[in-house]
Design a binder for these strands. Structure first.
Length: 879
DNA sequence: TTGTTCGCCTAA
DNA sequence: TGAGTTAGGCGAACAA
């Protein structure tokens, strides 16, 4: 047989239990897309599953073993499912250095049962690493590899099912290329952007009987050298079974890597799954695979029965759907996490991203009367369905969702699937475990660490003084927590525990945190985490340098690529603290998290104190930032002056002083592993006196309005409030308090008279819930008192009116009567004129405005009450 | 009217 | 695949 080789980006990995010459073997099955656009399945031979065992308890001398160790090992060897016990290796553990025996297991699925049995007498390590991941760790590869091997299947030479089975596959896969190889056929290459194929779909369903009325799918292909993607729209009508069959056929023929759609996780995929169950008897695999056999695996009953990564998509957890060889990426979820939109409907998000697209403004089909709509104007419904199958692709493209995930995958060295749908700790596991194994550090099981009791103390937040503050320099610690971890060598493997057999030598320098916890110094024992963080830091520098180079060369795609990569590195670095401060991570200890934050608090409080002692007033500080008064002339203007006006000179002088002071102060307080940077210069800073709520006029390094915490930033606020407050802050920072108060009063008055459109009053909040057995949504699991939650009330009304509602999504509503308790609300229905809102509670909204505006205006002598009434009772100075 | 609790969302 | 963390503001409901 011929050989095949090529560069591929790995989409996902799974394993198959196999037999070779009557002995068990396990095949790693890699699924990827090649650089030139072929879908590839590779069977990798020669890896064996297993786990590691060592003797429980503290160990002072790894060579001192129980007398009956031979007998014990022998009895392990004789256990069912165990192939072999390898020669022991000495590894570091938190109870001393110990001998570790690698127990080779027949098949990965036997591991859970063996774990249960072995843990009675042994300590287990490396015992809960999914076998597919093992391959990435052992070979030290990431998602971008060069792979070569024996060709089993191609367009020219279609594969033979039996021959493929002999290589560990389950039949002929619906892909371009299939090969068989071993560890020597795989090599790391530089990351590249894979020409993924995306498949986006949408269903329209009956309200009356839940059946699928019609469907649409859009395919997107983007070759690496093309600017614009090629899209192809398909529509499906007819009886339900044939719609499902044709959809499935299209998936298998078009062979996409990524399946998307809007809210498919919670609606479209569950619906197809339910309808499949309606049409198929439990054992009727033949029919099931025709209706929903979307996996990139052979269509046979064996693949049908797999619970994960098989032929039929399954919900592996509440988190994501899995199927063989493809990745489900819900455009809703991606849009939510990157955009944090105020509302989450497809219409809202699309209009947000594509404000110039007039088509999006067309009135929707009335989803609450879908059966009627379908009966009377099917072509309109189908058009609407087709559009909704295309939009998710545009959304993903606009927010660069696949490129971001690909960059994360490259940095974390995991398959695309893990970057797209995995957890933060899985990303870290990938880096930490491979380093641990390389350094002979035993890998503990998740959950093996002592539980963290209560919360650890976090960052320090300085009280903020209410009012206006002129000329503020904002100083920030550069990557504060990572720097502390590097600087103090903070790691699971460097923590000094009095009970540990290995102790630092007398007089050895150790890092002592303010909590008293101690860590070895880097020269004696470098931590895994500090090493990884340092490596990530230098990776980021490389990408930033490459960005500059690409920019200079006019290489737009290179610039974008390195920007994605440096951003992904940043994300990874910032994930370390959280994972290591969590209560469950395998390499954690409660002292790690609390030491990091304790060092951080000590650093920042120390600097605040020294600044104050020097007479530099610190106005505010949060965790890693310090807002300090710049010693400018007292008559320095705080609003940018007109060109050529008399204030201009003073303004420039103040700017100059701020730069000098900011840079000098940052430098003066910087230490080797605690670098302070002059990040931002403000000509004016305002807060009403609450922590985490402030605004500033940024004048360096660029001109901007910075707002933190206030209603303008909140997605559960409403537009009149958001817009009004934004305008108020602009005026306040210009020093025009009068105008700000006037604006506040006018806005409140307008709302009071109900002269504002209901659309500007929509409040949107997350509404949780769970599907009950009867198909109804149960709110009581998530809410102590569901009736008391406005968003639940709105959700219930939507359900009652046959309008779509998905637990876990934000829901928009308008308050119609706040006099009653709980207050009455109406869901916002964007398919209807004016959202279907006839009347709103103007007094309620006026009061909300007054409260929010009042907090700001209080600083200038107007209370919320006075704003609401429109005049002031006691006036010291009346405007 | 006031204090407590629940819940959402944000800053870092 | 159950799982990054804590600090903090504030609105609403509800009990007292």
């Amino acid at each position: 047989m011929a050989d095949w080789s090529g560069d591929i980006a790995v989409l996902s990995v799974r394993w198959n239990a196999h037999q070779e010459n009557n002995s068990p073997s396990t095949i790693i099955e890699i699924c990827g897309r090649s650089r030139n656009g072929l879908s590839v399945i590779a069977f990798v031979n020669g890896f064996r599953p297993g786990i590691e065992i060592s003797i429980p308890g503290i160990c002072k001398d790894p060579n001192q073993l129980p007398d009956d160790i031979e007998r014990q090992i022998e009895s392990v060897k004789n256990m069912d499912g165990i192939n072999a016990v390898h020669e022991p290796i000495i590894k570091w553990t938190d109870l001393g250095e110990k001998k570790h025996w690698w127990i080779e297991v027949e098949q990965p699925f036997m591991v859970p049962r063996l774990r249960e049995k072995l843990k009675e007498r042994w300590t287990l390590s490396s015992a809960d690493i999914p076998f597919g991941n093992r391959f990435f760790l052992d070979q030290d590869i990431g998602p971008h590899i060069h792979i070569s091997g024996e060709l089993l299947h191609s367009a020219e030479q279609p594969g033979d099912a039996d021959a493929i089975r002999k290589k560990g596959g389950t039949g002929v896969y619906p892909v371009d290329i299939m090969i068989s190889t071993d560890r020597n056929g795989v090599a790391t290459i530089k990351p590249f952007q894979a020409p993924w194929i995306l498949f986006s779909f949408d269903l329209e369903t009956s309200i009356e009987n839940d059946s699928i009325l019609c469907a649409a799918a859009t395919l997107e292909t983007l070759a690496f050298d093309m600017e614009e993607p090629v899209q192809e729209v398909h529509t499906f009508v007819g009886d339900e079974e044939s719609i499902m069959r044709e959809l499935t056929q299209l998936v298998r023929d078009s062979d996409p890597d990524i399946i998307t759609g809007y809210n498919i996780d919670n609606f479209d995929l569950p619906r197809i799954n339910d309808r499949m169950d309606v049409h198929c008897r439990a054992k009727d695999f033949e029919k099931k695979m025709e209706l929903f056999g979307w996996g990139r695996v052979p269509a046979n009953s064996e693949e049908c029965k797999r619970n994960r990564q098989g032929l039929l998509p399954k919900r592996a957890s509440t988190r994501a759907w899995t199927l063989g060889g493809r990745v489900v990426m819900d455009a809703w979820w991606q849009a939510r996490s990157t955009l944090r939109p105020r509302r989450e409907t497809l219409k809202f998000v699309s209009e947000l991203l594509f404000p110039d697209d007039e088509e999006l403004r067309k009135m929707d089909v009335d989803a609450s009367k879908m059966d009627e709509e379908w009966a009377t104007r099917p072509e309109v419904v189908l058009e609407y369905c087709a559009r909704d199958s295309t939009l998710p692709l545009q959304i993903l493209r606009k927010i660069q969702a696949t490129r971001r995930k690909e960059a994360i995958a490259a940095v974390a060295k995991v398959p695309f699937e893990t970057a797209a749908n995995g957890t933060t700790s899985q990303l870290l596991d990938s880096l930490v475990i491979r380093l641990a194994e390389a350094r002979d550090v035993a890998v503990p099981m998740t959950g093996s660490a002592a539980k963290k009791e209560g919360q650890i103390t976090g960052g320090y937040v300085h009280d903020v003084e209410a009012g206006m503050h002129p000329w503020i320099a904002v100083l920030d610690f550069k990557s504060m927590y990572p720097s502390i971890m590097i600087g103090n060598n903070v790691c699971h493997t460097t923590r000094i525990d009095p009970s540990h057999p290995i102790q630092p030598a007398e007089g050895e320098l150790v890092h002592i945190s303010p909590t008293g916890a101690q860590f070895r110094n880097k020269e004696e024992r470098e931590g895994l985490v500090p090493f990884l963080l340092q490596d990530l830091m230098s990776q980021r520098d490389l990408h930033k340098t490459a960005m500059k180079q690409a920019d200079a060369d006019g290489d737009a795609s290179g610039l974008a690529f390195h920007d994605q990569m440096q951003y992904a590195v940043k994300i990874m670095m910032n994930s370390f603290y959280g994972v290591f401060a969590s209560g469950f991570y395998r390499f954690t200890h409660r002292d790690l998290g609390s030491s990091i934050t304790a060092w951080a608090r000590r650093n920042i409080k120390g600097i605040i104190q020294r600044l104050e002692e020097e007479g530099h007033h610190v106005v505010y500080s949060d965790t890693d930032s310090i807002f300090v008064r710049v010693p400018v002339a007292s008559d320095s203007p705080t609003a940018p002056p007109e060109k050529g006006s008399e204030g201009e000179e003073k303004w420039l002088a103040a700017m100059e002083e701020m730069l000098r002071f900011g840079q000098e102060t940052a430098e003066r307080f910087s230490e080797e592993s605690a670098v302070l940077e002059f990040e931002t210069g403000l000509s004016a800073f305002f807060s009403h006196g609450a922590k985490k709520r402030y605004v500033g006029r940024v004048v360096w390094p660029n001109d901007d309005l910075m707002i933190k915490g206030y209603e303008t930033q909140r997605t559960d606020s409403f537009e009149v409030l958001t817009k009004g407050m934004q305008r108020m802050f602009e005026l306040v920072l210009d020093g025009d308090e009068k105008a700000a108060i006037k604006l506040a009063r006018e806005q409140i008055e307008k709302v009071k008279k109900a002269e504002v459109a209901a659309e500007e009053l929509v409040i949107s909040k997350l509404c949780k819930g769970e599907f009950g057995k009867d198909g109804k949504i149960d709110f009581s699991k998530h809410y102590a008192n569901p009736k008391g939650q406005a968003q639940v009330q709105a959700a219930r009304k939507r359900i009652e009116r046959n309008l779509p509602f998905t637990p876990g999504m934000k829901i928009g509503f308008v308050v119609t009567n706040a006099r009653n308790r709980p207050m009455e609300v109406e869901p916002w229905n964007e398919a209807e004129e004016n959202g279907g809102i006839e009347k709103y509670d103007a007094i309620f909204y006026a009061e909300r405005l007054a409260t929010a505006f009042g907090r700001v205006c209080e600083a200038f002598g107007w209370s919320a009450d006075e704003l609401l009434k429109g005049n002031r009772q006691s006036s010291l100075f009346s405007f």
